[in-house]
């Protein structure tokens, strides 16, 4: 990538922001309909402590859910790879969890799980674990048949085949699933926060967004949304570099 190509998205974004600001100012659009970028930055500056604390709360839920999703997805995938009965038993329920909108089951989970943080993590995990599960399961099933033959020929036991062949072969699939799960965990965390906010628990960014909406503080709402978008991009990029680093160290990539 040349330096021009690297600068292109930033320049494009700045031009867009400039046009936005220009349109809002010249057309005298009221801030409670569409604030300009400067109004959003000003709103963030006034309220940055509260917004950043909320962001931290949302990120804590996201991180916990991502770890839980990675463990749950991996364990279920291993169980499915180990036994056909386990595969038959797990698969339909995993799909049921995947297709049920979390917004519909979040109220139940918030009632069942007494601790608010844990309830949010459970909701976000339900949204995030599926790509880890399906990717890891696909990776464990995609062991090159000739290598499996080679292991058989040399009398490898199940443990050796799992740790020396199937798990390392599934690693790239797992990491790709993890990258998708990262952004889904954020989405799941925010959706669950929306539901929880209506019950009075509003520590996360969703709480700030709802609050700003009720008070018609649209610039503050935009500031919270911007933080959310930046968090999503950062999570995606960070997991991407994590994936490349791990593959460089342990994987096929040279």
């Amino acid at each position: 990538m040349t330096s021009v190509e690297r600068a292109a998205p930033i320049a494009f974004g700045l031009i867009g922001l400039g046009l936005w600001q220009g349109a809002v100012s010249s057309l005298h659009v009221p801030v409670y309909v569409l604030p300009g970028p400067t109004a959003i930055v000003a709103a963030f500056w006034i309220d940055h402590t509260s917004l950043l604390i909320s962001l931290l709360s949302t990120l804590a839920v996201t991180a916990a859910a991502l770890v839980a999703a990675a463990l749950l997805g991996m364990i279920l995938a291993l169980a499915m790879a180990a036994s056909r009965v386990a595969r038959a038993a797990i698969q339909p329920w995993a799909v049921v969890l995947q297709v049920t909108p979390v917004v519909a089951i979040a109220p139940l989970i918030i009632i069942w799980v007494n601790q608010q943080f844990a309830a949010l993590v459970v909701c976000a995990t339900i949204v995030a674990f599926f790509p880890v599960l399906s990717n890891t399961a696909a990776g464990l099933a995609a062991t090159p048949p000739e290598l499996a033959d080679l292991f058989r020929l040399n009398g490898a036991n199940r443990r050796q085949t799992l740790f020396l062949l199937r798990l390392p072969a599934a690693l790239p699939y797992f990491l790709a699933g993890l990258r998708i799960a990262g952004t889904l965990a954020l989405v799941g965390a925010v959706v669950a926060e929306f539901v929880a906010s209506s019950g009075g628990f509003a520590a996360g960014l969703a709480g700030r967004i709802l609050e700003a909406g009720y008070r018609l503080e649209i610039p503050r709402m935009f500031a919270a949304l911007t933080l959310l978008a930046l968090a999503g991009i950062t999570i995606y990029a960070a997991l991407g570099s994590f994936e490349r680093a791990v593959l460089r160290r342990f994987g096929a990539a040279s």
């Binding site: 000739e146 080679l150 490898a156």
Partner: peptide, 30 residues
């Protein structure tokens, strides 16, 4: 195990392991 050596049409090496680790594999499995 180990009495038969098999060479496939593709090299079918473990991509994450070094040449030495790949050669060691049958002994390691034993």
């Amino acid at each position: 195990p180990g009495d038969i050596g098999f060479v496939f049409q593709d090299a079918t090496l473990l991509p994450w392991a070094s040449a030495e680790q790949n050669v060691h594999l049958p002994l390691r499995l034993a």
